[in-house]
Write a protein that binds this DNA or RNA. Sequence first.
DNA 1: TTGTAAGCGTTATCAT
DNA 2: ATGATAACGCTTACAA
Lengths: 338, 338
Amino acid sequence: MVTVTIKDIARDLNLSTSTVSRALRDSYEINPETKRLVTEYAERLNYRPNPIALSLKENRSRVIGVIVPQIANNFFSQVINGIEAAAHDRGYHVIIFQSHESYEQEMITLQQAVARKVDGLLISLSSSTSDVSQIKELQQRKLPIVLFDRVVNDLDILCVTADNFGGAFAATEHLIQTGRRRIAHLAIPPHISITQERLAGYRAALEKYEIPYDENLIRYASFGQNEVEPIIDELLSYNPDAFFAASDRLSTSCLAALKSRNIAIPEQVSLIGFTNLPVADLLAPPMSTVEQPALEIGQMAAEQLINLIEGKQKDIQPGTNRIPTTMVIRASSQPAGK
Amino acid sequence: MVTVTIKDIARDLNLSTSTVSRALRDSYEINPETKRLVTEYAERLNYRPNPIALSLKENRSRVIGVIVPQIANNFFSQVINGIEAAAHDRGYHVIIFQSHESYEQEMITLQQAVARKVDGLLISLSSSTSDVSQIKELQQRKLPIVLFDRVVNDLDILCVTADNFGGAFAATEHLIQTGRRRIAHLAIPPHISITQERLAGYRAALEKYEIPYDENLIRYASFGQNEVEPIIDELLSYNPDAFFAASDRLSTSCLAALKSRNIAIPEQVSLIGFTNLPVADLLAPPMSTVEQPALEIGQMAAEQLINLIEGKQKDIQPGTNRIPTTMVIRASSQPAGK
DNA sequence: TTGTAAGCGTTATCAT
DNA sequence: ATGATAACGCTTACAA
């Protein structure tokens, strides 16, 4: 595609490129008449500065990289939405990379992002990642990085997450307050930060109400196919009176499994899920939910990253920023007797 | 962030940058020994060519732009997934732009993408777009463009869509075959190509079974809030015995509206939706669905675009490529008497 | 076989 | 007030 450059304008107007550049850039002393001439002509030709040339010169791309496990996922697509909004507001574009829940892919993708010269990186770790040394190394090499959602507890790195502890606590407390005592907890893999936080919230609620913690009621599922069904069966053998599912996919899998076993919700067991499903209201049987502020997480993460990039980071402390979750109790999910 | 350039290698090895470049690029006659030296050293320093410098030189960015109405949407996020996969396979990265269903925003975004020097553009038109002159103009200026899903019927431009006609025909035929005759059709705005195609499929099925076409049963809804409820009420006043909802959002809105009016599905009315909802199986009352091959649409669109970009387009005719849809009939969505 | 130089588009520095 | 030049990182004629 042919495009107009500063050279074209200079040639046509019998000026030097530096003069044209100055006129456009509004800098320095320049003849107002020349300036008018140039800007008008540039306007007429629909001149746009070449960001690639600028990137080369300024050694910055105005692109931020986002690494997520999957795009085609409600939560992450909403987060990306928030990231885009905040980034565009500040003149950045976004390139998305997927790790597909694989550590190896995540590392490859990390290298690609760096090679692509992103100005900074927003990362939500893959479920199979336990080693963040490469990320830390890039950080030490001065690449601005902010983690979100699936983070790692490490004070040196800026993080943005939902209030997983609070959400899990509220969910568990709700179940207890509606008379449940044997609450099964279906979680994603244990080494991920959010798993630990949600589990901690769950335990804290149990403790508050002096309900014993039973390890048999805790199960972890990764992201494979058909992993959940047998786990549900195992859990059911311990006679739970409620399920707390700790992720989007686990919530729906759990719902489907209970449905197919003709287990009445909430008569036989209650169900509450950590999920951002847009159609949760239409699901049957109804499930109460804890929703993560996906959009806000994305916005905040992007803003903090851009502050880092632009060196405006005095006021923000490294550490984790937690954004509150929203619990949605669906009336008919409460036990009939209540 | 400090990174290694060809200059660093040249300096350290007492060579010229061109020699280093040649050694790395594997081109030209070069001393095998020198080559070994250079490649090994580059490897050791983890040298990566600067894509920005390459872009400037080669006048191509190896980035394709994608303009969609919304990212946070099942269908589009799945399409993007497919686009990413195909693009990465061929060494391209993807920058995503959102039109938020606004024509103005779409035009701004189009300019941004062009200014960003994308090598090509994949576009799904916003619902408020009727004028594609800017897109055609860019195309005439030799920017490779492929439209997908929401396309415009114009033989000059390459398009990839689902088989909307076929899907709508199948859905309508299914409703007829299960005894329905007054089938309400809830569609997205009429000027969008997919609306017309789905409507045509609907009409064709009616004609095949010699059922009169009743305009009162056809309604259009845009993407605003709370638009659907009153429309459903209007439609209900014409006593439909089935609803065919032509989009993701309309399907769920329709389901919600019918549910809140205590209209039994499928006893009173049947419902079939054009939707890619991942949890359709869990919805109650059950709705049959026509699913679009989102991933495949994304892959095919990206492949065709990259072929265009790389000039390998001899074998592919301009026009529209239609990928079949999948109809999922949920048993309990059939009328009880059947 | 290797080095020199020009060029991609832009801006900053230093003349003029 | 404006022009010439160098530089960002890389490739590629052309020269040696």
